[in-house]
Amino acid sequence: MTVEGSLLSHLVELRTRLIRILGGLLIGFIPCAFYARELYTMLAQPLLEKLPQGGQMIATDVATPFFVPMKVAMMLAFVITLPHTLYQVWAFIAPGLYAHEKRLALPLVIAGSLLFFLGMSFAYFAALPLVFEFITYFAPEGVAVMTDINKYLNFVLSMFMAFGITFEVPVVVMVLVKTGFITIEKLKEIRPYVIVGSFVIAAIITPPDVISQFMLAVPLCLLYEVGIIIAAYTIKKSRQTDKSAMSDKSENDKV
């Protein structure tokens, strides 16, 4: 096969995979769109439960009551169809990977997806209720707390992204160690800097309240330690496997 033919076949394969990804998103979006209002109410529950008497959410633009729930429906469709999307990406890149890369990539993709969902869940069920309780507590007497639904959605999405990415730390540590970019000893050595950096990062990407900063920085530090433990265990197991393979080879050579 010529270079042009190979490139063309890859482009055709890429187009096919993209069409399937978009088709999956559309199929997932249609049922979510029917329940867009209920989905937004569920998403807004952490704030609605903390609003004082008379507090409510508002829409300041004409089309906002329609477009914001649709955004939520699209976001949920993306989450629901993420396994299908990842499979299409995997099916496209897998033929170009070596056997050891395939063994490493697939578990990392699965673990990364689960950790991202776990981070979003932690933000929704643990972080957001405490943040909104802290914020609404300081509302002055006589001030009705009324939040725009679009601004609330943007705020929640930013929190989801922050916590989702934070929960990817074990995967990042694992990749850095497996690729030889950094050693376990070096990771332990820079631990104090990581702790300080975690609180600095949390202060930058979270709202200006102590609760959200603390709830992002602490999991970041803990997940860093989890990443070190998993990476150390994996490296140890890999070395034992290599020694066993070398031992078997030596026995075969003697025979």
Rank of each mutant, 00 (worst) to 15 (best):
V171A: 09
A231N: 05
A73L: 11
I190E: 03
V62E: 11
D248G: 01
G24K: 00
V177C: 08
L118M: 15
T2P: 15
F155S: 08
N252L: 14
V156L: 06
T147Y: 09
T166F: 02
A99I: 08
I182T: 15
F199N: 05
V3L: 15
Y35C: 05
D148R: 08
L7Q: 06
V145I: 13
F167Q: 04
F66L: 15
V12M: 09
L108H: 01
G197E: 06
K151Y: 12
A111Q: 01
M120E: 02
K188F: 02
V255Q: 12
H100F: 11
N252S: 12
L222M: 07
P46V: 03
L157S: 10
F34Q: 08
Y137N: 13
I27C: 03
P69N: 11
P69W: 10
T179K: 14
K102S: 08
A217R: 03
F199G: 07
F116L: 07
T81W: 00
L157R: 10
A73V: 11
L216R: 05
I58C: 04
L11W: 14
F199K: 05
G28F: 02
V72Y: 05
I211K: 03
T234P: 04
T81G: 00
I230M: 08
E101V: 07
L7D: 09
M146A: 15
T206L: 03
L14Y: 03
F66D: 04
L7Y: 04
L115Q: 05
L130S: 08
L106R: 02
L48I: 13
T16S: 14
P65Q: 10
T16M: 09
K188E: 03
D148E: 06
M75I: 02
L43M: 15
E189T: 10
I190S: 02
T136N: 12
A91S: 14
